[in-house]
Design a protein around this nucleic acid. Structure first.
Lengths: 198, 198
DNA sequence: TCTTTTCTGTAGTGGTCGATACAGAAAACT
DNA sequence: AGTTTTCTGTATCGACCACTACAGAAAAGA
């Protein structure tokens, strides 16, 4: 049952969470191996043996983010009963998470790789795909709202998806610039005022 | 009249514009001296003699941006007759500029330094101050709208400033992710639908 | 106990980072 | 012409980057 050789001296999930926080705050390129290993409490060879390299560590950190602090968008679109409730929960739950103490502010997917330097093109493209996929899920949920009669037949679901994605991404930057939860919530009040009236 | 020694072999404003484009696309840290000097067509010693260093070059590039491709926000708030027209012109003029060919997409002030790596803390703080100053100018313009009777006395100008700043910043990310001008304009239609009704 | 396997820490690898020392070139001043 | 001043290109600088070779340590299997 136990693996053959010397057992790992650290908790893989635990140090991955530490790596996630570093990437979240510094971005992919801004996070150096020195800072990562220091935060994880391990040495470079252990990092490479357990995670393969900086890029695959980042991708694993993104996966962990998606099922922890970054789960609220997918959950809102999945669990809320109406399209409107989905959008509002998406904005409010994320805004709350963006300002929570104990981890960096804003969304890791929005902030970790907005710039690219050629060398990290692959990582940049991957994160951009995650953002595009989320936007597409939102559009599908809005389309479902049209089919269920919640939204008018001629509602511009593409524009609504772009608008609420724009707001969601903008909230990340506001949080990173120091806005608190109350301020974000008042901005969300205004964003929800744009919802098509019946 | 002419300076004493050997004359500079390049146009200072011209190479500064090239540097601005590199910083705009790559961000402050992502722009390497090698890429900057290659784009500017000069060697490192010429860059240091003319601009002092990477950080002061970046600050000069930001100043140039503020009077060229990044002038639309300040202009809209200064020249439009009403607060509402100011906000709408701010959004639409910037959205148009974000998608223009011939330069990187999105806003340099939003994209050039969202992450920080400790070493570039000063640059990060400076750009964050620029964003905060713009948000404050917007708030003042909205306050003026209240004083002139365009907006109700109890209008939440702080929330409006946060909301439209959120949208403006979000549009930069949408543009960077490939959205075209028509898509941004439809999102702006929705953002303007949040404007307080009389 | 002895071998095999896998992890650990030390101490580096070559490469690139931002920034410069230096010498020659090109202008103005005398 | 000769001196002074400033810019230009070459050829680096030490520091840091992501990454790894290597040997010793700690477990399982024989």
């Amino acid at each position: 049952m136990s693996p053959r050789g010397r057992p790992r001296a650290f908790d893989r999930e635990k140090v991955l969470a530490e790596a996630m926080h570093v990437f979240w705050e510094r971005g992919y390129e801004g996070a150096s191996l020195a800072e990562l290993t220091a935060a994880m409490g391990i040495n470079p060879p252990s990092l490479y043996a357990a995670f393969g390299g900086k890029e695959s560590l980042f991708r694993e950190a993104l996966e962990l983010y998606g099922v922890t602090d970054g789960q609220y968008t997918a959950r809102a679109l999945r669990e809320q009963p109406t399209a409107r409730a989905s959008v509002e929960a998406m904005l409010r739950d994320n805004a709350r998470a963006y300002c929570e103490p104990g981890h960096p502010t804003g969304c890791m997917v929005v902030l970790a790789a907005t710039n690219y330097t050629g060398a990290s093109q692959g990582v940049h493209d991957y994160v951009a795909e995650l953002r595009a996929a989320t936007k597409d899920k939102l559009r599908k949920r809005l389309r479902q709202g049209v089919e269920e009669g919640e939204l008018a037949e001629d509602a511009d679901v593409g524009a609504l998806a772009t608008f609420y994605t724009t707001v969601l991404h903008g909230l990340s930057l506001q949080a990173r610039d120091g806005a608190d939860r109350a301020e974000l919530d008042r901005a969300i009040d205004l964003a929800m005022a744009s919802w098509p009236r019946p």
